[in-house]
Amino acid sequence: MGSSMPQWLDIFEIYARYCSERPDSSSDLDVVSRNDYATSKELLAVLSKSLEYSGQRREAIFNDIYKLMSCLDLSVDSRNFNRFYDFVFFFCRESGQKNIAVHRAITAWRLVLNGRFRLLNQWCNFVQEYQRHNISEDTWQQVLAFSRCVNEDLEGYDPKGAWPVLIDDFVEHMYSLVYMMFFSRCRISRSKNCSTEDYIFGCAD
């Protein structure tokens, strides 16, 4: 990075640079040596710093992200989306911080996971209500993995699956909600055919 930083980087440039500097993808991680990994971390740190200089547009980041998203072709390759998703975290981070604030994370999720995560609404509501601490990078990344491996009845969730505690709590919360709903419905309708599956998340949205 030269010292003569451009005054204003638009999100496309930042994204391009992010993609080139990021220690990329699962496939060649073994090839990338620790050194390279460290350098790329540093480069990203520099890039992150440069974001501060263009900080006047922080309020508009979500517009930028939306712009970027609509221009990228994210439908075909999940790796592309991965990279984009990670980038959003990177982009949303306040300078010098490792995590992002809850409200910002929720806005970002609603934006980028729209149509990709069947429990998006429930998830965001849950995080809004119960999470006090900032969202860590690991949690951020695991939410994407989680969104991919569960469907709306939470099938595919493995309690021993090393999910972050926030996700475990979310699942537990959903279960308790569903059972509550299930039993109250059963009482009202006195239906014999009531089964929990019928009500799983059918009425939550």
Binding site: S136, D138, P164, V165
Partner: peptide, 20 residues
């Protein structure tokens, strides 16, 4: 689990990219 998360955050550990 919470301690592991905290250690990941403080970069003592990381999640494997391929097998989470």
């Amino acid at each position: 689990k919470k301690r592991i998360e905290s250690l990941i955050e403080r970069e003592f550990l990381e999640r494997d990219k391929a097998d989470r």
